[in-house]
Amino acid sequence: MFEQTMFYLFAIVSVIAALFVVAGKNPISCAIALIVTLGALAGVFVLQEAHFVATIQVLVYAGAIMVLFVFVIMLLNLGPEDLEKTPRFSRLKGAGGIFAAAGAALLAWNFVSYAARAARVGPGFGGLAQISQKLFTEYIIPFEAISAVLMAAVVGAVVIAKREL
């Protein structure tokens, strides 16, 4: 009961915040709304026994990626007044909204019947030890590849954003 209540709470918060992200007027507000979404989803993850993922969600998404977003928005000083000159939404807003809603409906319709019960998980599921174990044995090559990707991203970001090289 507690778990269900918390899940619905988090789910509703995340959806409402996501709506803010999509429709918000002010980039900073959107960013904060997205952080709220991410936080709520971290809560959902905790309820799903995914403790490590939840922590990383906060650490990486909220703590690093979104800080970067907010930093850029502040750096470019994008206030709401910038957006008043041009409309917030593109010409495709009607069609895009309809198609996205259709997509959501179709996906949900596919999922509604998917009511299989979750497996019983042992203690320590989703904990640091289990994930590390798997990450450094079975997934070691993707793990190393990810570090290469991140390295490339760092170099790329520096090259792109630097004023002159």
């Binding site: 403790h51 922590t55 502040m74 904990g127």
Partner: peptide
């Protein structure tokens, strides 16, 4: 006594910056 205690500290500490950033902005 979280299993991911230290990560939790890093994660939450990294949120502290929002207070300052939002204040500044």
């Amino acid at each position: 006594d979280l299993d991911t205690g230290l990560l939790y500290i890093l994660a939450v500490a990294s949120l502290g910056v929002y207070g300052i950033m939002l204040a500044g902005w």
